[in-house]
């Protein structure tokens, strides 16, 4: 029996500072055979192990066809991620994955796509943006909506500007608190719905704080988007990532295994219910 708990060694190929507390680690397995076998879907995550400290679940932001790149964009908030923040090129880590259900990209083909993110929620969705832009002809109009608390929290600002200049792409940015030089809206991310055109047949993928996603679900339902076309990436405590440790349960769902990406009807009953 294979040991599903055992990581493999990876090396940091590159470290990119995205903001004062957010950084990206570009990783590759040191064993070329493992690297060659490794495949993932946008929206899936890995368990990243910092030697002597522990493991954390981190979503994958690179493109699945960049088979030599596994990028993780991380905010230094906890014991493990603060340690990861100190690493540089050449450092070694453990990695196992990928885990979970990713975004419904086959379902999305031929349709308009709306991506809504808040905070660092953009990380799991960035892999989708890359995915769609590389396969542009397979998808309809792409709408990228991003909300942040403070204008300083926006990472990849240049990328958002570049995306906004592409044909058939709309970008909307909103900050709860505006600041000098802010070129987006001020207010909750839902103010953006009035600024962009959303086709009721669009497929919606969202990620970020749950109150934001709940508000967005309500707004989109009002605009006629079907419940089963609303897809949410959920976050819960995860120790094992394989549905054994029990921490990530949300009702009957193991977020690590049944999610982290869910169609709204599957989590509707407990979304926003305190304690689940």
């Amino acid at each position: 029996m294979l040991d599903p708990y055992l990581p493999d060694e990876v090396e940091v190929l590159e470290r990119i500072q995205e903001s004062p507390t957010i950084f990206t680690l570009r990783l590759a397995f040191t064993d070329p055979e493992i690297q060659a076998r490794y495949r993932f879907q946008p929206g899936q995550f890995n368990m990243v192990y910092l030697y002597g400290v522990g493991e954390v679940p981190i979503s994958i932001v690179s493109d699945p066809e960049d088979e030599h790149l596994i990028d993780h964009t991380i905010r230094a908030v906890g014991r493990v991620t603060q340690g990861l923040a100190l690493l540089g090129k050449g450092a070694r880590l453990g990695l196992r994955g990928p885990y979970g259900r990713g975004w419904p990209l086959q379902l999305a083909e031929g349709r308009d796509i709306v991506l809504l993110t808040g905070g660092l929620g953009c990380a799991p969705v960035v892999s989708v943006i890359h995915y769609i832009l590389r396969r542009r002809e397979r998808f309809g109009r792409l709408t990228i909506l991003q909300g942040v608390k403070h204008t300083d929290d926006l990472i990849w600002r240049a990328q958002y500007e570049a995306w906004s200049r592409l044909p058939d792409v709309q970008v909307g940015l909103a900050a709860d608190v505006g600041g000098p030089g802010w070129f987006g809206q001020v207010g909750p991310v839902t103010v953006l719905f009035d600024r962009v055109h959303i086709d009721p047949g669009a497929l919606m993928m969202m990620c970020g704080p749950e109150p934001m996603m709940r508000a967005a679900v309500q707004e989109l339902r009002r605009r006629g988007v079907a419940e089963e076309d609303l897809w949410l990436s959920m976050e819960r405590s995860m120790h094992c990532a394989i549905g054994h440790c029990g921490h990530c349960q949300m009702g009957g769902n193991f977020v690590c295994r049944n999610g982290p990406v869910f169609p709204y009807p599957e989590i509707q009953a407990l979304l926003g219910e305190r304690g689940f």
């Binding site: 030697y51 002597g52 400290v53 522990g54 120790h239 029990g246 921490h247």
Partner: peptide, 23 residues
């Protein structure tokens, strides 16, 4: 069935043990 995974590094840093414990 809930359990936590936790790490116990050796004091000299030469090795580390990854445990699971009932949670």
């Amino acid at each position: 069935f809930c359990h936590a995974e936790m790490e116990e590094p050796a004091l000299d840093g030469s090795h580390s043990a990854h445990y699971r414990q009932w949670d």
